[in-house]
Design a protein around this nucleic acid. Structure first.
Lengths: 120, 120
DNA sequence: AATCATAGTTACCATTAGAAACCTACTTGT
DNA sequence: ACAAGTAGGTTTCTAATGGTAACTATGATT
C-alpha cells in the first residue's frame, strides 16, 4: 500500500467552514447584491430573479443567524425591511470577487471544451 | 415607488455561472484535493472524510461532465482510477484559495459574534 | 369597500444528500 | 480450491433542501 503521493491539503476544513457560511441556494447572490449597500426584500428579489420569496426568506434568516447580515425593520407605512452586511459579511466579498473573476475565464475556456450536454 | 438606490451589481450572472460549476455537495473539496496533483477515488474519500461513496461518485461524474476534471483508468491489477484537474479545473483554484483565506478571518470574527445556535 | 404594496408564510411536490449494504474483478492467504 | 481483502463503485431507503403557487396581515390609496 502506498502512502499519500501528493502532499495532502493542509487545511481542508477551512474551505468547508467558509463554504458553510455561504451555503444554501442563492446565498452568494444575496451577499453579492448587498455588497454595494443595504437592500430591501423586494429589491433582492428583483436582483436575483429566479429566487422565490420562500427561499429568499429562508436564506436571509440563515445568513442573519450566521452573522453575515443584519435585518433592520423601519417603521414606515408598510413596514420596510432592510438587510445589510455585517463586518463578517464583508469579509466574504473578496472570495465572491474571485469567483466572479473565474466566471469570466470560464466563458473563454468553454469555447474550447464543449463538455456540456451535447454528448449523447 | 423608488428606483434602485444602490448601483446594481453589473454581472450577477457570472457569479451564478461559476457557482454552478462548483455546485453540489463536496465539489469544492474535491477540486481542492486535486489541486496538488491527481488522486484516486479512495484517496479523495479519505481526504474528505464525511463524503460517502455515492456522493463522491456522483460529484466526480458531474465534474467530469462539466470539464473540471478528467478520469483516467489505469490497467493495473485491480484497475485503478485517477482523477485530475483540467485546465478549466485549475482556473477554479484561485477562487477556492480566496475562500480558504476568508476561512481564516472568519475564525477571528466568530470570537466576537456568537450568533450561532446558542439562541433559544 | 375594494384594491394594492410590502414582507413574508404555508402547503405540496421534486430533487438532492446521507447512511448502510451490496456488487464485480482481481489478488492473496491457507 | 476456497475464503477474504482491495478498488471502485451501485443500490436502497430516508431526511433535508429547493421550487411553485397560493395565501396572509397591515396600512395606504381609490
Amino acid at each position: 500500500m502506498r502512502k499519500n503521493r501528493s502532499p495532502k491539503p493542509p487545511e481542508p476544513c477551512l474551505l468547508t467552514e467558509c463554504m458553510q457560511v455561504i451555503a444554501g441556494a442563492w446565498a452568494p447572490n444575496v451577499i453579492w447584491s448587498l455588497r454595494a449597500g443595504p437592500r430591501r426584500f423586494n429589491e433582492l428579489k428583483t436582483d436575483i430573479p429566479p429566487v422565490s420569496s420562500k427561499v429568499l426568506s429562508a436564506r436571509l434568516s440563515e445568513l442573519e443567524e450566521r452573522g453575515v447580515l443584519v435585518r433592520h425593520v423601519r417603521p414606515t407605512s408598510p413596514p420596510s425591511v432592510e438587510y445589510e452586511l455585517t463586518a463578517l459579511g464583508e469579509e466574504l466579498i473578496p472570495a465572491l470577487e474571485a469567483i466572479v473573476e473565474v466566471g469570466h475565464k470560464l466563458k473563454q475556456l468553454r469555447g474550447y471544451e464543449p463538455a456540456s450536454e451535447a454528448a449523447e
